[in-house]
Design a protein around this nucleic acid. Structure first.
Lengths: 205, 205
DNA sequence: CATATTATTGAACGATGTTCATAAATTTAT
DNA sequence: ATAAATTTATGAACATCGTTCAATAATATG
């Protein structure tokens, strides 16, 4: 008996219901509201039931974050350089940053949970979820390869990580209102400027 | 009676003892360990006593973060461009970023609390503490003014915020090990590269 | 259909920050 | 000085959190 079929069916159903509820709570009320009791009462199950499906409450949060990354991927995967969007590689990289910025503004709660959770979690984030992050940066890598065809695999990955991290820092501190009030247009202009300047300054090297 | 002198004396003494204890706990065990009961038992007072000195536990954390910012300021204020360090403005900006990076590595717990706390806190961070952050970015502003004497006040502040945010993002995700393992030397090289490239790419504009 | 196995439940546990009636200390008045 | 009045410190108690586990319900097996 590889686990009763009635049981696994119920568990799978509960699993998606929990993630759905978690997604809604996170989006509307933020990460702090995404508690075990809140999701349990939202789907109408017991608190203990969550632990039959997920190891932790962190497991549920990671599952929700995975959904967020998928949404983000759909938003930015339209900016493939040289593809249907007809953008030059450097324009494409700037647009990727702007799209990232827009997503963060539009889905602030879900977006910030992506990184807040990583900071406060105790156990290691599983590889399959980290790979989802890496996959997103893959879009940057592709654009970089088009921009500088002779770049090595290692260098392109390093540079993509650098660009992403830098843009992420600007969006993150920008949305927290750290140094100045940031209307959306201003933030978008800043990240585009950052990407273009960095790429321009790097070119001769 | 502007508040009994015996009382205020005790309270002031307790205040610094609480901050001392908080600083030690934060540095050694991280932000999660910085609890009301932990600091109370460390200084040997009641939990309620904390609330006679600070409004929140957040108030205590902010006081500790203020100490951290002062330490960070001492570390980076030696890099004044054109001053005793004899560095060119752009070298100075790169060194500032590297010094920031070193501080983050050396005092990871205290440093990350600076921003983690801002993300999870509910109430607004008080102006006097935000100004301490702004003061730190002032070092960048000064270097930028030396580099481009014609820059406006507004532009120099914006650009300084952009540079800081970008460097912060790289250090932050770097120390979290998001994209690649980052030995100290690698991280320092990355932030220096980022600053130099951005400045170079910006120059013609 | 009865028995054995497995899965689900929700009260209970140990934390957390925060409060507030009580106790202790200090200041004021006599 | 001593008593009364006021202010301050205390820590048990409250609400919340994630998590567990004996007891119950449901399923699978003989």
């Amino acid at each position: 008996m590889v686990t009763g079929s009635k049981t696994t069916e119920r568990r799978n159903k509960l699993r998606v219901e929990l993630i759905n509820a978690g997604e809604e709570i996170l989006g509307k009320q933020g990460l702090d509201a995404l508690t075990a009791r809140a999701v349990a009462s939202s789907v109408g199950c017991s608190v203990g039931a969550i632990y039959n499906v997920f190891e932790d409450i962190d497991g549920l949060i990671i599952a929700v974050n995975s959904r967020t990354l998928a949404r983000l991927d759909r938003k930015i995967s339209s900016f493939v350089p040289g593809g249907s969007c007809g953008l030059e590689p450097d324009d494409c990289l700037a647009e990727l940053a702007v799209a990232y910025c827009r997503f963060a503004i539009e889905h602030t709660n879900a977006w910030s949970a992506l990184f807040e959770h990583g900071e406060r979690i105790s156990r290691q984030i599983p590889d399959w979820h980290m790979n989802e992050h890496v996959h997103l940066v893959g879009h940057i890598v592709k654009s970089l390869r088009q921009l500088r065809p002779t770049i090595s695999d290692e260098d392109s990955r390093q540079l993509a990580g650098l660009l992403f991290s830098a843009v992420h820092g600007v969006v993150s501190l920008g949305l927290q209102g750290f140094f100045f009030a940031v209307p959306q247009s201003r933030l978008e202009a800043q990240v585009a400027l950052l990407v273009r300047a960095t790429l321009a300054g790097l070119k001769p090297a």
